[in-house]
Amino acid sequence: MIRICSTDDVVPGEGLRITSTVPPIAVFRTEDDEFFALDDTCTHQDASLADGWLEGCRVECPLHASTFDLRTGAVDEPPARLPVRAHEVEVRDGEVFVTLSTAVPHLPPGVTLGAS
């Protein structure tokens, strides 16, 4: 488990892109003050889900409107076809900790591990 950021770093209803991980992840803070973490890059094209539209327990990719479940990373409809990985989150003393998934990430064409 690694410390990712402080809770105050994430605005309620928004996401924060974290580039210290490989690949980058997005930490989301819902309006209900729950925290979630997904791979940040949409599986369809290189776009940051942290910049997406957060509503309830889903985030909509800002480019082509596929939405991903914050709890599972599952995608609802094309153009994205593959899920993003969901990471386990723990909030302790105002700090956000994440256990990165060990699954193989689904990155879009042209994006490779290590590219930030």
């Binding site: 892109r17 980058p24 940040d40 890059t41 094209q45 290189d46 776009a47 940051s48 910049d51 997406g52 539209w53 909509e60 990719c61 800002p62 480019l63 082509h64 409107a65 042209g110 590219a115 930030s116």
Partner: peptide, 27 residues
């Protein structure tokens, strides 16, 4: 719905005009 998106290369702006997304913008 969510933003203003250019129909050409999908540069995407929020309702304050800020550039929120574009293909490969993260790089």
């Amino acid at each position: 719905r969510r933003s203003f998106q250019c129909p050409y290369h999908a540069w995407t702006y929020d309702f304050d005009g800020r550039l929120v997304a574009a293909p490969n913008l993260t790089s």
